[in-house]
Design a protein around this nucleic acid. Structure first.
Length: 949
RNA sequence: GCCCGGGUGGCGGAAUGGCAGACGCGGUCGACUCAAAAUCGAUUGCCGAAAGGCGUGCGGGUUCGAAUCCCGCCCCGGGCACCA
C-alpha cells in the first residue's frame, strides 16, 4: 500500500519525454548554470564598479526588493523558510519582465547568540560553523532558482562588512541630537556652539571656566551613543546584559528563556529616545501592515500630559519636591494622595520615624514604624519578578510613609504612599492619585480607605467606580464647567505660571542598551585612555577585527557577579598602542561587542554598493535605489518581506540608525523600508503519542479518521513547522520528488503571501500536474517534438488569453500568486480541452506568464519554442483591450433579488431591450405572471431585477 | 480589559454591492493496465427522486439586490497591558 505522502515513484513505462521530477531537476540545474554563466540577474548600478550594463536599463524605473536576511542556523531549512523568498522572487521576476531594473539579493545575518550556542553544542569555533552554515543554506536556497545578484551578497561577520558597521557606530558616537532642530548634528558643531557661547552649558557656567574634564563630560553626555550607569537587564545564564526589547514581559531572556535581573551597571547606550517623535510620526508615511505600526506605536508609547510638583513635608529635614507625571492634569483637584514607586530616590528621605497620631491601621501593614514598614515593603517588591508585580487583578498593596505633600493647586495636604503599582521606569516614578478618575487609584483607595473627590461630571446614569471619560469639570475651582479639552491647557498654564509644573510628553521607549559581553559580535571601535575616557579609533584603522580566541565560550555567571567579556581573555589584544594626537600611547580596548541587531541595521545599504571601500554607500547609487519614488514619500526599499516577529526590534533599530545617517547626510531616503509585508507562516500537523511526546509526522498514517504511528494511536495538533514539533518537510525532499518549480508553484498557490497556510504534501500533485499539462501542450511526450502550430489563434483563444493576462497581472501585482496560478490553470485547461495542438500565439504568452512562478520550466519551453535568449528580460504579456470587448454578454435575471435565469443580449443593448429580453425568458415570465410588478432594476451589462409583490 | 487581523464546501482558498464556492486537493464513477501506481476524462456545497428549497459564525438593519456596507453579539489567531 502506498502512502499519499510519498512522492510518485518514477515509472519505467512512462513516456520518455514526460515532465517528471527527473526531467525537472535536469532542466533546473541547466538553467541555474546558464543564469549564472550569463549573469542574467546582475542588477547594474548607475555609478561605480557595478555599473556595467546600466545604459541598457537607464530609462527603466528601479525596484529594490528585499527579504529579511536569514540567520545561518545549523539546523538546515524546511519548506516554511523560503516562502517569503519565493514570494519576492516571483514579484521581482514579474517586475523585471514588466520593465523595471530590479535589485534583489540575499545576505546572512551571522553574528549573535544563536551562532555561539550552536557552536557550543558542536564544540566548534563559531567562525567555522557560521561559514559552513552559510555554505549549506546558500546551496539549499540556490536550488530554488532565485533571481538574485550574487555579487551583492553580504555576511555581517565579514571584516569588510563590519568595518562599516563600526564606521556607523563612530558616526553615531560623533553626533549629538539638537532638540531645537529635531535632528542629529556632528558633535564638533556642538563644541563650536559651546565655545562661542551661543549655546549655554548645562549648569550655566561659561565654557572657558570649565575644566578640560568638565568640558569633556559635557560633550560626552550629549553623544548619541554614550556610556551610562543605568539599571540594565543582566542575564547571568547568557553571561551578558540585554536590551529591553530582548527581555520578555515576564522578565526572561527572549533567547533561551533564562532569568533576567535588573541591576545598575555601566554600559553603552544608544540615544534612540531622541528620535521617539520622528519614529512615531513617520510611521504614518510608511506602507506597512497596520499591526506592525501599532506595535511600534505601543513600544514608543508616547503620552502627553504634565509634570506637577507636590511639595513634600517631611517630619524633619528640608522640604522636598515630588514631581509626578499625569496625562490628566485637569483632575488635579481630585488628587487625594501621592504614590512613589518603591525604588523612588525620595522614599528614604520622606519616610518618617514614627506614625503620625491616629494613622489608619490599614496604612501601616502592622509595623511599628514607617521605616520598618517601608523597608519590609521594598524587600518584598525586590523579590517579586516583573510578572508577579504586573498581574492585572492583584489586590493593591502599599504602605504610608508617615509624611504628607501639598497639592499645589489648593495646598491641601495629602498622604504619601509607596506602592508597587507605580513603576520607577515610567514617567517620574511618582503619581498623584485621583481615585475618582482612575480605576487603579480607585482600587487602592478602596483598600486603604482613602477619600474620593470626583472632578469630572460623569454622564447621566453612570454607575461605576472611577469615571475615565471626558466631561465638564466639577469640584475643581477655576476649572469648573470647562470641558476636558479646555481644562487641560488651562491647568497646565496655571501650573507653569505658578512654577508648580509644566506640560510635557513622555515615552515608554528607553535608550537602547548596546553592549554585550559576548565573543561572536562586532568589536567596538573604541579605546580608553588612562583616565577611562572613551576615544574613537580613527576611521583609517577600521575594521577593528575580531581577534581569534579558542576559549570564546561564555561562562555562565552568578546572579550577583559582574559580566566578564570574553575578549578580555585575548592575550595581547586588550591593549593597543596608538597615536591619537598625543604621540604613541598605550590604550585599553573596549572589550564588549555589539548586539546581534547591529549588522542588520544597515545591510540594505551595503547591497547597493557592496564593494565600496571609500564610503558606506556611494551617494548616487543610494539615491538611485532608495530615493523617494514620488515627491513627499520617505524613500527606502520598495518592498521588504519578512516575519512579523521583527516588528519592534530590528525594524525600530534600523529606522533609528537610518535616521541618524539621514541627518548626517549619508543617505537621501528618510526611512529604510518604504513598503513592508509580513509573509505568513507555513504550518503543519504534528502528532503526539499517549505520553505527550511528538512523533515523526511523516510516519503517521490515517485510518478511518484516526491517526496512528505504527500501531499506536496518536493525537493530531497543528502548529508552526519545525524541529520541535517533528513535522518538518525539507525542500530537498521536494526537489527530489517534484523539482523546484513545483515546490515554488505549490507554495505560491496555497494563498496570498501574507497569509499563513497549512502544508500538505498530498496537495502538491495539483500544481505538478499543471506543469505536466502545460509541458504536454508544447512537447510531444513520446517524441519530444514541439507540437504548437503557427496558425493564428481563433477568436475564442484570443479572448481567453486577454482575460488571463488581465487577471494574472492583477494577481501578481497584488502579491496574490494563488489567483494568478488559478487563471493560468484555467487557460491551460482551456487549451488542453480542445484536443488539437495549440497555437503559438497563445502558448508563448502563457509560458511567459508562468515564468515568474516556475522559471526553469518556462525557460526550457521558451527555448524549445525557438528563442535563444533567456526570457528573464522579455516583456511580460500585455492585455489586448480589443479582445476584452464582447459583442454579446450573458446577464442575470432576478426576481425579488433572487437569480432565476440568464439571457444573452448585445453588449450595447439599452435598458428597454434588456428588460424586454428578460421578460421574454420563459422561467422569468412564469414567475412574474399574475403578480404586481413594483419595480424593474436594470444594470446594463450585469442584470435585470424584477420586484414583484 | 484595550488594540489589530480573521470566520465562505470534507480541506487550501476565489468572488469587495450584482450568477457564492473560480482554481487545486480529497471523494465518486470511468478510460488505460493482468493489477496497481502514474496519467487522462466525467462528476462533486447541503437537503430532496424531482420540482424546488436552504446556504458565506450568530442576531438585526440599509438596499431592488449583502459573503461584501452599518449596528449588536459569539468564536479563533496575534499584539499590548497597574505605562499614571
Amino acid at each position: 500500500m502506498s502512502s499519499p505522502d510519498q512522492p510518485p515513484a518514477p515509472g519505467a513505462d512512462q513516456p520518455p519525454h514526460r515532465y517528471t521530477a527527473e526531467l525537472a531537476q535536469d532542466i533546473e540545474s541547466r538553467w541555474q548554470q546558464r543564469w549564472q554563466d550569463e549573469g542574467t540577474f546582475l542588477a547594474p548600478n548607475p555609478e561605480g564598479p557595478l555599473s556595467e550594463g546600466f545604459d541598457a536599463v537607464a530609462g527603466r524605473p528601479r525596484l529594490f526588493v528585499m527579504d529579511m536576511f536569514p540567520y545561518p542556523s545549523g539546523a538546515g531549512l524546511h519548506v516554511g523558510h523560503p516562502l517569503g523568498y519565493i514570494g519576492t522572487d516571483v514579484f521581482a521576476r514579474y517586475k523585471r519582465m514588466s520593465g523595471y531594473n530590479v535589485l534583489q539579493t540575499m545576505g546572512y545575518d551571522a553574528f549573535g547568540l544563536p551562532a555561539e550556542q550552536y557552536a557550543v553544542q558542536t564544540g566548534t569555533h563559531p567562525r567555522v560553523t557560521t561559514y559552513a552554515n552559510i555554505a549549506n543554506m546558500s546551496r539549499q536556497l540556490g536550488r530554488l532558482g532565485l533571481g538574485h545578484d550574487p555579487r551583492r551578497s553580504v555576511a555581517t561577520t565579514d571584516p569588510a562588512y563590519y568595518r562599516w558597521t563600526q564606521w556607523i557606530f563612530l558616526q553615531i558616537f560623533g553626533s549629538w541630537f539638537d532638540e531645537e532642530k529635531n535632528r542629529a548634528r556632528p558633535i564638533t558643531e556642538l563644541v563650536s556652539e559651546l565655545e562661542a557661547g551661543t549655546r549655554p552649558t548645562p549648569d550655566g557656567r561659561p565654557w572657558d571656566e570649565l575644566s578640560a574634564d568638565e568640558r569633556r563630560q559635557v560633550v560626552d553626555s550629549h553623544r548619541l551613543v554614550y556610556r551610562d550607569e543605568a539599571t540594565v537587564n543582566w542575564c547571568p545564564a547568557l553571561g551578558t546584559v540585554l536590551a529591553n526589547e530582548e527581555v520578555t514581559a515576564d522578565g526572561r531572556s527572549e533567547r533561551g528563556n533564562h532569568p533576567v535581573y535588573r541591576r545598575p551597571m555601566k554600559q553603552w547606550m544608544m540615544h534612540i529616545t531622541a528620535y521617539a517623535d520622528r519614529l512615531l510620526a513617520d510611521l504614518d508615511r510608511l506602507d506597512w501592515p497596520e499591526p506592525v505600526k501599532q506595535m511600534q506605536r505601543n513600544w514608543i508609547g508616547r503620552s502627553t500630559g504634565a509634570y506637577v510638583d507636590f511639595a513634600a513635608v517631611p517630619v524633619e529635614g528640608d522640604p522636598a519636591n515630588i514631581r509626578v507625571f499625569t496625562t490628566r492634569p485637569d483632575t488635579l483637584f481630585g488628587a487625594t494622595y501621592v504614590v512613589l514607586a518603591p525604588e523612588h530616590p525620595l522614599v528614604e528621605a520622606l519616610t518618617s520615624a514614627s506614625w503620625p497620631e491616629g494613622t489608619d491601621p490599614r496604612w501601616t501593614s502592622g509595623h511599628a514604624t514607617p521605616a520598618e514598614a517601608v523597608a519590609a515593603y521594598r524587600r518584598d517588591t525586590e523579590r517579586k519578578s516583573d510578572l508577579q508585580r504586573t498581574v492585572g487583578d492583584r489586590e493593591k498593596t502599599g504602605v504610608f510613609l508617615g509624611t504628607y505633600a501639598a497639592n499645589p493647586v489648593n495646598d491641601r495636604l495629602v498622604p504619601i504612599f509607596v506602592a508597587d503599582y507605580v513603576l520607577v521606569g515610567y514617567g517620574t516614578g511618582a503619581i498623584m492619585a485621583v481615585p475618582g478618575e482612575d480605576d487603579r487609584d480607585w482600587e487602592f483607595a478602596e483598600v486603604f480607605g482613602l477619600p474620593v473627590i470626583r472632578t469630572i461630571t460623569p454622564p447621566e446614569g453612570f454607575e461605576g467606580d472611577a469615571y475615565l471619560g471626558d466631561g465638564p469639570a466639577m469640584n475643581s475651582g477655576f476649572l469648573d464647567g470647562m470641558s476636558t479639552a479646555e481644562a487641560k491647557p488651562a491647568i497646565i498654564a496655571w501650573l507653569e505660571e505658578h512654577g508648580a509644573g509644566e506640560g510635557t510628553t513622555t515615552y515608554k521607549l528607553r535608550d537602547w542598551l548596546f553592549s554585550r559581553q559576548r565573543y561572536w559580535g562586532e568589536p567596538f571601535p573604541i579605546v580608553y585612555d588612562e583616565r577611562d575616557v572613551p576615544l574613537a579609533v580613527p576611521e583609517s584603522m577600521l575594521p577593528v577585527t575580531l581577534p581569534d580566541l579558542d576559549d570564546w565560550a561564555p561562562r555562565p555567571a552568578a546572579e550577583d557577579s559582574e559580566p566578564e567579556p570574553p575578549l578580555g581573555r585575548v592575550a595581547g589584544w586588550t591593549t593597543v598602542t596608538l597615536d591619537l594626537g598625543e604621540g604613541p600611547k598605550e590604550y585599553r580596548r573596549e572589550l564588549n561587542t555589539m548586539p546581534q541587531w547591529a549588522g542588520s541595521c544597515w545591510y540594505y545599504l551595503r547591497y547597493i554598493d557592496p564593494t565600496n571601500e571609500v564610503a558606506l554607500v556611494d551617494p548616487a547609487n543610494e539615491r538611485y535605489w532608495l530615493g523617494p519614488a514620488q515627491a513627499g514619500q520617505t524613500g527606502g526599499v520598495d518592498l521588504y518581506v519578512g516575519g512579523v516577529e521583527h516588528a519592534v526590534l530590528h525594524l525600530l533599530y534600523a529606522r533609528f540608525w537610518h535616521k541618524v545617517l539621514y541627518d548626517l547626510g549619508h543617505v537621501s531616503a528618510e526611512e529604510p523600508f518604504h513598503r513592508l509585508l509580513n509573509q505568513g507562516y507555513i504550518q503543519a500537523f504534528a502528532y503526539t503519542d499517549e505520553r505527550g511526546f511528538y512523533v515523526e509526522a511523516s510516519e503517521v498514517v490515517e485510518r478511518d479518521g484516526a491517526w496512528f504511528h505504527g500501531e499506536e494511536p496518536v493525537t493530531r495538533e497543528y502548529g508552526k513547522m519545525g524541529k520541535s514539533l517533528r513535522n518538518s518537510v525539507t525542500p530537498d525532499e521536494m526537489y527530489a520528488g517534484y523539482g523546484a518549480d513545483t515546490l515554488r508553484l505549490y507554495e505560491m498557490a496555497t494563498g496570498p503571501l501574507d497569509q499563513s497556510r497549512p502544508w500538505n504534501t498530498r496537495d502538491i500533485v495539483g500544481v505538478h500536474r499543471l506543469l505536466q499539462r502545460l509541458w504536454r501542450l508544447v512537447i510531444d511526450e513520446e517524441t519530444g517534438a514541439v507540437v504548437v502550430v503557427d496558425e493564428p489563434a481563433d477568436a475564442e483563444d484570443r479572448k481567453a488569453l486577454a482575460r488571463t493576462v488581465l487577471t494574472v497581472r492583477d494577481g501578481l501585482d497584488g502579491m496574490r500568486s494563488n489567483v494568478a496560478i488559478a487563471r493560468i490553470t484555467e487557460l491551460v485547461n482551456h487549451l488542453t480541452g480542445r484536443g488539437t495542438p495549440p497555437p503559438r500565439a497563445v502558448v508563448e504568452p502563457l509560458v511567459l506568464m508562468l515564468a515568474p512562478l516556475a522559471p526553469h520550466v518556462a525557460e526550457e519551453l521558451w527555448s524549445r519554442l525557438g528563442h535563444e535568449r533567456s526570457l528573464a528580460w522579455t516583456d511580460f504579456p500585455v492585455v489586448d483591450e480589443a479582445e476584452l470587448v464582447e459583442e454579446q454578454v450573458e446577464i442575470a435575471v432576478s426576481v425579488n433579488g433572487k437569480p432565476r435565469s440568464r439571457v444573452l443580449v448585445a453588449t450595447d443593448a439599452d435598458q428597454a431591450t434588456l428588460e424586454a429580453a428578460a421578460r421574454a425568458d420563459e422561467k422569468v415570465a412564469a414567475l412574474i405572471e399574475g403578480k404586481t410588478l413594483r419595480k424593474v432594476v436594470v444594470v446594463p451589462g450585469r442584470l435585470v431585477n424584477f420586484v414583484v409583490g
